[in-house]
Design a protein around this nucleic acid. Sequence first.
DNA 1: CGGTCCATTGATACCTGTCAATCGCCGTGG
DNA 2: CCACGGCGATTGACAGGTATCAATGGACCG
Lengths: 252, 252
Amino acid sequence: MIRELPELVLPGATLDTLKASCASCSMHQLCLPMGLDNNDMDRLDQIIGRRRKVPRGAPLFRIGDSFQSLYAIRLGHFKTYQVNREGVEQITGFQMAGELLGMDAISADQHHCTGVALEDSEVCEIPFGSLQQLLADMPTLLRHFHRMMSQEITREQSVMLLLGNMQATQRFAAFLVNLSSRYEARGYSPHVFQLRMSREEIGNYLGLTIESISRLLSKFKKEGLLRVSNREIELLEPIRLKAITAGTQTCA
Amino acid sequence: MIRELPELVLPGATLDTLKASCASCSMHQLCLPMGLDNNDMDRLDQIIGRRRKVPRGAPLFRIGDSFQSLYAIRLGHFKTYQVNREGVEQITGFQMAGELLGMDAISADQHHCTGVALEDSEVCEIPFGSLQQLLADMPTLLRHFHRMMSQEITREQSVMLLLGNMQATQRFAAFLVNLSSRYEARGYSPHVFQLRMSREEIGNYLGLTIESISRLLSKFKKEGLLRVSNREIELLEPIRLKAITAGTQTCA
DNA sequence: CGGTCCATTGATACCTGTCAATCGCCGTGG
DNA sequence: CCACGGCGATTGACAGGTATCAATGGACCG
């Protein structure tokens, strides 16, 4: 089922092979779990648009941009944020390789949030018009696409739960556990990873201040729950961390 | 474009006419704004399942239920909530006639939240299997369906913004303004309406306590922003209310 | 080596939660 | 018809969790 593909683009590759490898890499991650067969994959490859590099800090799309494409992250990390009428940002999510960006823009044909790369990243552009045509005669892909949109709804609901009735300690533990499980699902270590976002961005996402995040990190460190050095983090007691997330343990 | 349909089911109606009127009423509201033509509407009617009454307080679906259908609210109001591992509810949304329920269940074939009627209500069941078949060869409807899912994502993002960086006063003003505009969009008065949910449910949704909601109502009343008697509410200064939502006015 | 930005830590203030008492509406039953 | 009881809502006093403000520390970069 898994097709062998060059992880790095070879020198001398044509535009077509570039496109193909682009599509496959990110779409593999997106689609394989859902059981697309090779035939479907090939057809999918054909509609995938160009690969695009996004340097750290650069926007992939901005609030108000007209909606043309979805973006599959091939490499790197992104954040999406809204801006309220005071001009204050609210981060609505952090996305990593293998995840899809831009689904909130379908409803009104324009983006409702801004997507910015947290590090030098790479995405595949998926023109939505072409995708829709394809969806119409590929039931498997259609189903898969609906699952992905639904998953986004579910994800946001759990953030609402987090923001609505968790204390700071619980929120931060939940944040770490969430990152951990996403890295694990992608084959990375669930216990040692880099925080790709600043303390300020974490705080913004969790509805807390940068100082609170800092204090929570110190507290967790003191408790022996984790080790942290700048953005490098190691979870020493994932079980206890999960317990705190669940609210069954207060963390001293 | 708007087809004339009996608002109330006539005595002596056959099962088929019942189904048809059911489908039309709720789906009209769902689909007309998106520009479905009559032909599409007729085909849509055919897959709509039975109409179902849901008495006040009764669940339409529960967390963990296997996913079979989406539900279009024909009449009444619902709330959806998640439950964290401590067993604490977090309301994720209030839905009214013309809105669609259950889209979060597509991702894992089971419901991630519980939907409960806030008053005696009525829904149309839309079997998802049938809907998918239909979507495959009705591009207009497919597009419309994607818009609705995307709209749900957008809605939840704005709740995240509300929970993540608004103060209590701002949250509550935003809540009222949101209800107001939704009633207006449905042809009801945007200034006078019934709160279908208890203070406790509002507080839960906004991440506040029932006491805070009570105090905010009193404060708004004192400011001359609204009049309230039990669940009947009248917005006296919608403009100022919107200003508070935007954060441009502090409300004394 | 110095500047800048981000992170950490401490002191204090404020918002909202918690606890408690009272009120008022409403349905029930005498 | 009225008394009673129950539940939701209101209001007040107080406490606690985070935000805010301020100072310091440390990493990265020119």
